[in-house]
Simulated assay, not measured.
Amino acid sequence: MAATQVIRSEWTKIRSVASTVWTLSLTAVVTIALGMLISALSKHAFDSMDERDRFAFDPTYISFAGMGLGQLAMIVFAVLVVSNEYSTGMIRTSLAAVPQRGAFLASKVAVATGLALVVGMVTSFASFFLGQAMLGSLGTSLGEPGVLRAVVGGGLYMALIAMFSMGVTVMLRSPMLSLGILMPFFFLISNILANVSATKKVGRFLPDQAGGRIMQVVPQADDTPYGPWGGLGIMLLWVIAALAGGYVLLRKRDA
């Protein structure tokens, strides 16, 4: 089967499943709404902040406050894209039609990542503009140094989250097991490891902690040994490792 046919087939699979459309929509709605809420609350609380907090105030990053929760919906989307075929048994038919497993996986990841990137970019820009509207005089603009990089980085971050989740799901195959690991890891464990002094140096190299640096404009008062693009690079390495692991296991195992 030609590459274009495989990609078209994957596109048909994804758009025909209502849950994937709903999860992508939920990603945007949750991220934007929570970002607006936190931005409005931050504006209200600004006058009561001490001098240190005012100095570290990052209006761009505040508008992305919903990313942490919105990424969970993106994870669900990525898991469903991969695991749906395993759950229904369609994986056997798919691999029979596309025996080149590398081409099969690459096409699925490419189509889903393209969707995640579009939704991520729209969500990131919308979160920024609406967040700045809530911040009013405390807000910033795309023309300020580092702001456009942070906003574009927000969209890239969401796409990389989806890719990492797909790689993990290919390895695990089970939707329940994949969600049971990914959701608590990103929502709870990663934040704990990154904020506890004993594990902070390890936690800062986890995919979401490192990748999230791309959305920050105001430098943080810590000793993190990498910058915004370095953090995104670390996240990309995690993504490559997850997809490579998924590919190796996909080639070795039966459907």
Rank of each mutant, 00 (worst) to 15 (best):
V147I: 14
F57I: 11
V76G: 03
V6P: 03
A221G: 01
V6D: 04
Q5A: 15
Q100G: 08
T113W: 12
M121W: 01
R8V: 01
T113C: 10
M90N: 15
S19D: 08
G68M: 01
M74Y: 07
W11C: 03
L148F: 15
A65P: 04
R52F: 00
V122I: 15
R173L: 15
I161T: 10
V6C: 03
R213W: 02
I181N: 11
L249P: 09
M235S: 09
I234P: 02
P99G: 15
K13V: 11
A96Q: 12
R101P: 12
L72Y: 07
A133S: 06
I38H: 02
R173W: 15
S83R: 03
S16I: 03
V17G: 09
V168D: 06
G167E: 05
A255C: 02
A221L: 07
F185R: 04
S197R: 12
A2R: 13
A126K: 01
A112K: 10
K252L: 11
R204D: 00
R8Q: 08
G245M: 14
L156I: 14
T12D: 08
V6E: 07
A96E: 11
W238E: 07
G211D: 00
G139W: 11
K43M: 11
S141Y: 15
V17H: 13
G143H: 12
M134H: 02
L37H: 02
S16K: 05
V21M: 08
M171L: 15
L95T: 14
M176H: 13
G167D: 06
